[in-house]
Nucleic acid binder design. Structure first.
Length: 285
DNA sequence: AGGCAGGCTTTTA
DNA sequence: TAAAAGCCTGCC
């Protein structure tokens, strides 16, 4: 099916924004048009797989049915939200850094990803770079996720259920190159499978309670809890502070960051700044 | 009580 | 060899 997205939406920007680790850019087909921005991504989210191609003129081709789009992917891409309007709340004179970040990273959206998948993914992310995170997530999915076939006839592995992950042995987890995070992933799987934590319920919980419950999990600190809150529960005011954000806050906001002014969109602005700063750093190297 | 150093697995550059 | 979307433990 073909859809039109008038609001901010940039597949490459989202793919590089560090919130999703199972997006893969496809090699361009030699027969289809070259160059002109018609990128294709293969996206695995939860148990689903989607090929999405940008066609230009705000149009996108998706290899799913209307129903799959309405029931899943439309929400996944957060297409009910108006990001252009959220960007317009930033004053270029009052906050030039955030304005430049939002302008440069225009097209990023906060995906509505599965809470359990985000919990495991960001536990895995600690002290690691993005290629290593992607590798471990993929290995874990292969280890205990459902094997399925996409519309192109290619195999993929659904993200594992909590029960499937909880059933893995120490050796099997270790084979996913999780290192010392093995015991954290195991504890999270036990908690989610055994019902001692109800991630879905946290979607409607307030932020202090959400963070308090998430950080009660072994291996989940304030940073990972904020990532789960933002990317898995869609609490878009959550503001994860990692080593990069610490640098940004120290360099650009020595007198303090105006969280109150930007509520309830702090998480979205954080994502613009995070991506922009990493872009600037990569160019200097 | 709350802050801080050291350690932890593995990969990447 | 250091750094990587950190967190836990023990010590003060």
């Amino acid at each position: 099916m073909i859809i039109r997205i008038g609001d901010d939406f940039d597949l490459n920007k989202i793919a590089e924004s560090g919130q999703c680790f199972r997006w893969t850019k496809q090699e361009p087909h030699t027969l289809s048009g070259q160059g002109a921005g018609n990128d294709t991504f293969r996206i695995i989210a939860g148990g689903s797989c989607l090929y999405i191609t940008s066609l230009g003129d705000d149009r996108y081709e998706l290899d799913c049915t209307d129903e799959e789009y309405r029931c899943f992917w439309q929400d996944y891409f957060d297409l009910w939200e108006n990001y252009r309007s959220i960007r317009s709340r930033v004053d270029p004179k009052q906050d030039p850094f955030l304005w430049k970040a939002a302008e440069h990273e225009k097209g990023i959206r906060i995906l509505r990803q599965d809470a359990w998948e985000m919990l495991v993914t960001f536990i895995i992310s600690q002290n690691r770079n993005i290629p290593a995170i992607r590798r471990s997530v993929e290995l874990l999915s292969e280890a205990c996720g459902d094997k399925r076939t996409d519309s192109e006839g290619r195999e993929y592995y659904a993200f594992p259920t909590p029960a499937a992950a909880a059933a893995l042995t120490q050796e099997e987890l270790s084979a996913c190159r999780l290192g010392y995070r093995c015991k954290y992933v195991h504890a999270a799987a036990e908690a989610a499978a055994g019902g001692s934590i109800d991630l879905e319920r946290l979607k409607t919980a307030d932020e202090p309670e959400t963070l308090s419950i998430l950080t009660s999990l072994f291996g989940v600190g304030i940073k990972v809890a904020n990532c789960v809150s933002l990317f898995g529960l869609h609490h878009i005011d959550a503001f994860p502070v990692d080593v990069w954000m610490k640098r940004i806050l120290a360099e650009q906001y020595p007198d303090g960051y105006p969280y109150e002014k930007y509520s309830p969109y702090n998480g979205i602005y954080q994502q613009y700044m995070f991506a922009y700063y990493r872009h600037l750093s990569s160019k200097q190297l």
